[in-house]
């Protein structure tokens, strides 16, 4: 297959397949979760569950002081990783083009050079995360092959995108193709791994926040 044919395939049919699996898988997971239901809480509420749920969806993005003082590196690194991913995915103009095509809305991007630098930081943070996973006794103990898999499928698009932009190792066209293919891999893998947390965290926070909100406790 010619390189360009591969690129055309990656941008066309392959993307379709990956997107279809992603959408299908995520919906399936959502149904699986919601179908299990939740008993109505009959205790007299002290506060609002809805307010608590909504609040927790946001507030859980900030670390507790107690945790931050114990694990500053892990928390800062987590921020770098997630903010980095956000910037790289959503604030890079060529990516915004894609979203515009998909959702019909567009927004401001960042200078490509900035995104490039953020990508480098994000890649670094992934490696720091890996080192922590390997060297921290708790993480080493609870980590499963799936955790390393999602690490890898998150890393690949970042590295290939970075290398394509900076003309490293392989020609741009091939790298761009690999970049697109790696994103497709991510899309395919996401619904069936812990990457589901990209959506389900909202549910998790909502449920805990709702419970806490009814009790009038912080969460």
């Amino acid at each position: 297959m010619e390189l360009n044919e591969l690129l055309i395939w990656a941008r066309g049919p392959a993307f379709n397949i990956a997107l279809a699996i992603f959408v299908f898988g995520m919906l399936l997971r959502l149904f699986e979760i919601l179908s299990l239901g939740r008993k109505e809480d009959l205790s007299a509420a002290r506060g609002s569950g809805v307010a608590g749920g909504l609040r927790t969806i946001l507030s859980r993005s900030l670390p507790r002081q107690t945790l931050f003082s114990r694990e500053p590196l892990r928390i800062i690194n987590g921020y770098l990783l997630h903010i980095g991913l956000f910037v790289v995915i959503f604030l890079y103009r060529p990516h915004i083009e894609l979203f515009e095509r998909l959702f019909g809305v567009s927004w401001m991007g960042l200078p490509t050079g900035v995104v490039d630098a953020v990508t480098a930081v994000t890649i670094l943070s992934l490696f720091v995360a890996l080192l922590i996973r390997i060297y921290n006794p708790v993480l080493r103990f609870i980590s499963t092959p799936g955790d390393y898999l999602i690490w890898l499928v998150t890393l690949l698009p970042l590295v290939s995108g970075y290398m394509a932009y900076n003309h490293l190792l392989l020609g741009y066209t091939l790298m761009l193709t690999l970049h697109i293919l790696s994103v497709e891999l991510l899309l395919i893998v996401a619904p069936f791994t812990k990457l589901t947390h990209m959506f389900s965290f909202v549910l998790a926070r909502w449920y805990q926040g709702y419970l806490a909100g009814r009790r009038g406790v912080e969460s």
């Binding site: 055309i8 941008r11 066309g12 049919p13 993307f15 379709n16 997107l19 060529p94 990516h95 083009e97 894609l98 095509r101 998909l102 761009l176 697109i180």
Partner: peptide
């Protein structure tokens, strides 16, 4: 170039 050529 970044827009997939599929009917998303």
């Amino acid at each position: 170039l970044s827009v997939p050529q599929s009917r998303m």
